[in-house]
Amino acid sequence: MKLFQKKADGSQDGLAINRISKKANAVLNTVFLLWALACVLPLILVVIVSFSSEQSIFENGYSFFPSEWSLDAYEFFFKLGDQLIRSYGITIFVTVVGTLFSLTITSMFAYVLSRKDYAYNRLFTLLMLFTMLFNGGIVATYMVNTQLLGLGNSIWSLILPMSLNAFYVIVLRTFYKSIPIEIIEAARIDGAGEFKTFFRIVLPLSKPGLATIGLFTTIAYWNDWFLGMLYIVDQKKYPVQTLLWSMQNSLEFMKQSSANALEYAEMAANAPTDSGRMALTVLVVLPILLAYPFFQKYFIKGLTVGGVKG
């Protein structure tokens, strides 16, 4: 295979260096196909097992072709009714509000650090990097959030502790530095202030970076169960992940949610185990899978933030 081809004038065709043979192309396509299947097949198996009966799982184990299909796992969880809907509502609220709030303060902080003319640029950069290396630990954080800030058993305890991530600040700062300074200077000449320049010029040019950070933040808020377990006492305020974690690890929750002991005994006897775990996974993952395509067009470009450009 020739990497370079000479043109009529004797120069070499630079595009030829990127060409590969058909055999190499077939091998690469096969490798990527196998890799994609390795990523997708476990998810498909989870969905199939969630629709399998407990007897089928007991007899055949986890299988792509169960001997008996069943909706028992989903029916079991949907018996919670209002509690499940309420928890989904709390999670959606926390995810939406938390993502918007996090993007707001992260983008503004990153923009300030990207400006070389800011007098305290180095100081705040060092303070930000310090938080990536050291933290006060769970006990100190819990005391500050509950005793000092009064966030105990509050929905804001699910939002504020995760609202600023130093790594995301670095990513956005790098993205802002890729914006030509001439654009910002032109806005200044036209009489735009700092806030107008930021909101009217910088943010629209930063959509790929914001979408990438927004996707990561959304996933973090949606999947978080630890803050609910740590700060929330009232089960009616549980986000869906904490609710499902509680259901999975303790039948005491079902006992408290049941109208009477007979209902509890019936639920405990019919509680799915293996298929229930998979149904929990589907209930948690499905909304994120449905939301991802809306971010996809920005996601790949955002991942190349800070890449070397030729």
Rank of each mutant, 00 (worst) to 15 (best):
M1S: 13
K2C: 08
K2Q: 14
Q5V: 15
Q5E: 14
K6P: 09
K6G: 12
K7W: 05
A8F: 06
Q12I: 03
Q12G: 13
D13H: 08
L15M: 14
A16N: 15
N18F: 15
S21E: 06
A24L: 08
A26R: 05
L28W: 14
F32L: 15
L33Q: 02
A36L: 13
C39G: 04
C39M: 15
V46W: 07
V46K: 06
V47R: 09
I48F: 05
I48D: 06
S50E: 03
F51H: 04
Q55G: 11
S56F: 07
F58E: 10
S63L: 10
P66V: 00
P66Y: 04
Q83P: 04
G89V: 10
T91F: 01
F101L: 15
S102F: 10
S107K: 09
S107D: 03
F109D: 03
A110P: 00
Y111T: 00
S114H: 07
Y120P: 01
N121E: 08
L123K: 00
L126M: 09
F134H: 06
V139W: 10
Q147G: 05
G152K: 13
I155V: 15
W156H: 11
L160I: 15
L160P: 11
M162C: 11
A166H: 00
R173M: 11
F175M: 12
I183G: 05
A186M: 12
A186C: 06
I189F: 02
F199Q: 10
L205P: 00
G209K: 01
L210N: 08
F226L: 13
L227A: 11
G228M: 14
M229V: 10
K236I: 09
P239C: 08
Q241Y: 09
L243S: 01
S246E: 14
S246C: 10
S250G: 11
S250D: 15
S258W: 05
A259N: 06
A261H: 08
E263N: 01
A265Q: 15
A265H: 14
A269F: 03
A269P: 07
P272T: 00
R277H: 06
L283N: 04
V284M: 14
L286D: 12
Y292M: 07
F294M: 03
F294S: 07
Q296Y: 12
Y298G: 11
F299L: 11
F299C: 05
I300E: 09
T304Q: 12
V305Y: 02
V305G: 12
G307S: 13
